[in-house]
């Protein structure tokens, strides 16, 4: 009697463990679609989108340049020492440009934006939630998803591709600095390899990734902040800190998962 009770209990627990992530995924998806619909519903919130483009985009340029430069430089170094073993160091330009444009650019740019802007979004919206500011919006008949999430989503869809493009270009220049200036590959050769190897397909693929990452990052970060009050394991300031942490961790994991899925489709 007691034994069968424990077994059904365990089974029920297992079932709950399987159901709750699916439920959560559904809620996130609904949140995302609401955000998309409100993004295109009138009156458009152009001023708020521009504010957010400044916050997510413009203010991230510096950190994107910095990480882009060092990523390109280290790719130049590693690429050189690998290629030189096969006597084909002339291909360095192609190796750096393709890995940046197809993989490293979109992924690393997205991760840097999560660190800079995604965490801030989760914290800001989380604080608004716990201090009843989101309830206040509702009492004013202002839709909080439309007011808080949609402008950030729109701004991210605009900013991510640009930031990725900046990351790629700065990275290619970084590869040139190590490959040509430090290790002595002919600079004309480096850039002609870049030009001849990169196809429009590669660039489009990179942009497609950055669009998807934009949607994933903003949805996860805003959703975590928005649902701060539903957390069982922490309230108040603790809840906000947990939301911010899980927003960053989940976003980064989902970027890499989505990157794998997208790459397998794009190749």
């Amino acid at each position: 009697m007691t034994q069968s009770y424990t077994i059904t209990n365990m089974l029920a627990g297992l079932g709950r463990m399987a159901i709750s992530p699916v439920q959560e995924f559904g809620r996130v998806a609904i949140f995302f679609f609401r955000g998309v619909i409100y993004l295109f519903s009138f009156p458009l919130q152009a001023d708020k989108i521009i504010d957010q483009v400044y916050f997510i985009g413009t203010k991230s340029v510096f950190v994107i340049c910095l990480t882009g430069a060092f990523t390109g430089m280290v790719l130049g170094l590693q690429g050189y020492y690998t290629l030189v073993k096969f006597g084909s160091e002339g291909l360095l330009g192609a190796a750096v440009a393709l890995s940046l444009i197809r993989e490293m650019g979109p992924v690393l740019a997205a991760i840097m934006i999560v660190a800079r802007a995604g965490s801030a979004m989760a914290a800001e919206i989380g604080i608004m939630r716990i201090s009843e500011q989101i309830d206040a919006l509702e009492t004013m008949d202002i839709n909080p998803v439309r007011f808080l999430f949609s402008p950030r989503l729109g701004a991210a869809l605009i900013s991510f591709p640009f930031l990725t493009a900046i990351f790629d270009v700065v990275g290619i220049i970084g590869g040139y600095v190590t490959g040509s200036l430090l290790l002595g590959i002919n600079s004309g050769l480096y850039f002609s390899r870049v030009e001849s190897s990169v196809l429009m397909e590669d660039i489009n693929g990179g942009f497609a990734k950055s669009f998807c990452f934009a949607a994933i990052v903003v949805t996860i970060c805003c959703y975590q902040g928005y649902t701060t009050h539903l957390r069982k394991e922490g309230f108040g300031a603790k809840g906000v800190s947990l939301s911010t942490t899980s927003a960053v961790v989940l976003s980064c994991v989902m970027i890499l998962v989505a990157d794998y899925v997208l790459t397998s489709f794009l190749l």
Binding site: S131, Q133, A136, T139, D141
Partner: peptide
């Protein structure tokens, strides 16, 4: 929603947008 629009609410903790 039409009913809700007639209301206004002042929160105990003010709930101002900080």
């Amino acid at each position: 929603r039409a009913v809700k629009m007639k209301f206004s609410y002042m929160f105990q903790g003010t709930a101002l947008f900080d």
